[in-house]
Design a protein around this nucleic acid. Structure first.
Lengths: 141, 141
DNA sequence: ATAAATGCAAAGCATTTGCAACCAT
DNA sequence: ATGGTTGCAAATGCTTTGCATTTAT
């Protein structure tokens, strides 16, 4: 991607990567995407995955999520939405709650900054990890 | 910190680290804390900084913030609050807007999960970076 | 006395980058 | 032909960890 013009060339690699991203709701890591893309293009390199995930994010075709872990997750749904993160297994799931767009304006007013985006995440334990926790508790008794 | 009992021993290092954390509103990185603590304890090691920042976070005395960067920032104010992140200079500032605690319950209901925490951040450009941008724009003309 | 905590250095690991070859425009 | 893109491998940089030693309890 040309830094000044933002011009990008169409490549097979980027196309496959975007397809993979859009084919899942699991908010995959770069490495997961890599493994998946390799099924279609065995010679693709991990560097290319990283470069394209970055490019796609800059193009507004994907979101990069951090959420505490040491690695990023990516989301092929670039429309802002909120997430729940399981602190036990790391799973990230989409939440179907309305966007609070008006918040950005009020923050911009109050803090004297320009606001272009916001993120809202919830943390806790997913249904699956909760049931495992129950099992372990029962075993302990 | 003992993993089972959560028992921690009081140390000079942890005390200084917590004091440093609480003495600033800048949401410092581990390395910034390291440089600061070194002024009081020249022989402290970076590993000790990391270990204690982790311990303090687990103890509920500090918050660990990710926010996109490749490194963590820490916050000596452990009470949940919201942040604004400048995407240009990386600065993180506290926002003085009311906590939306009721959201956690509604997410827990809707998604069938246990919610223990939530995070809300706003992204954009801080006042300082905005004015620099203006200057560059003016120079270009 | 016990085991948590430290300093040091090495290791870990996700991500980035330099470079020659490649390929979309 | 131009210059964005790739594969490869080396490098980067934040963070973690093993170990002998120190220190709080």
């Amino acid at each position: 991607m040309n830094k000044k013009t933002g011009f990008v060339r169409k490549t097979k690699q980027r196309e496959v990567i975007l397809n993979v991203l859009r084919s899942t709701k699991t908010h995959p890591t770069a490495d997961w995407v890599y493994q998946e893309v390799r099924k279609h293009m065995p010679n693709v390199s991990l560097g290319t995955i990283y470069r394209n995930l970055k490019t796609l994010t800059e193009m507004g075709e994907a979101l990069e999520l951090s959420y505490g872990s040491t690695y990023s997750r990516f989301d092929g749904n670039a429309k802002n939405h909120y997430h729940f993160v399981c602190q036990e297994c790391g799973e990230v799931v989409d939440l179907d709650i309305p966007l609070m767009a008006q918040l950005e304006a009020s923050v911009a007013d109050a803090a004297d900054v320009k606001v272009t985006d916001h993120r809202l995440e919830f943390y806790g334990q997913c249904e699956h990890c909760l049931s495992i926790g129950d099992m372990q508790q029962n075993q302990a008794n």
